[in-house]
């Protein structure tokens, strides 16, 4: 039987990797629209917001995928790649019972922790992702994406612990 927490985690990783907002208050008018949404930015400073998939400048109404930024987006692309591979490993690991599945979930957990550490250190000190925020503005500058990543890491720990070892 599949690891349900692992599958839930995989879905959350897909949302974090490919979505800008989680739409809430959805209604049907001329198409599907929503009143509001939960933005999944890792951090924002001024008009610039950093997501797992790229950078958005709200003032210019423009968004860029990491690779379209050229050399400046390489570190962000590696981060995105790590999260996508982690997502795939989570899904595969959830379906495989026994030690193999647990190993895959464990590797995915390590990838997520590396991503989290990389994002926090980069945003607070280095700035290769495009923005830096000072320690005094940490709670204003950090977005919901970081909180979601923390939830994903915690869920992944639970998924590894409860993984079915009977083959």
């Amino acid at each position: 039987m599949a690891n349900k927490i692992g599958i839930l985690n995989g879905i959350l990783l897909i949302i974090l990797n490919f979505f800008a907002v989680i739409p809430v208050g959805i209604y049907f008018a001329v198409g599907i629209t929503s009143f509001t949404g939960i933005p999944l930015a890792f951090a924002h400073n001024g008009s610039i917001a950093v997501y797992a998939w790229g950078v958005v400048d709200i003032a210019l109404s423009s968004g860029n995928w990491w690779l379209t930024l050229g050399v400046a987006g390489i570190s962000g692309f590696i981060l995105e790649l790590l999260l996508i591979v982690g997502c795939i490993l989570t899904f595969i690991g959830s379906w495989i019972q026994g030690v193999g599945g647990r190993k895959l979930l464990g590797i995915s957990l390590i990838m997520e922790i590396v991503c989290f550490l990389f994002i926090t250190v980069d945003i607070l000190a280095i700035g290769t992702l495009g923005i830096t925020i000072s320690f005094s503005q940490i709670f204003i500058g950090i977005g919901i994406g970081i909180y979601l990543l923390v939830i994903i890491i915690l869920l992944q720990v639970i998924a590894v612990r409860i993984h079915n070892m009977v083959t």
């Binding site: 809430v24 208050g25 009143f35 509001t36 939960i38």
Partner: peptide, 29 residues
């Protein structure tokens, strides 16, 4: 709503940013 408030003018109040004002509705959601 469970996810936020819609005014008579169609203005919504959601969770664009987690701050003290909307921490209770966010926990509820």
């Amino acid at each position: 709503y469970v996810w936020g408030i819609v005014d008579t003018n169609g203005i919504w109040h959601g969770f664009d940013q987690i701050c003290l004002d909307n921490i209770v509705p966010f926990i509820l959601w």
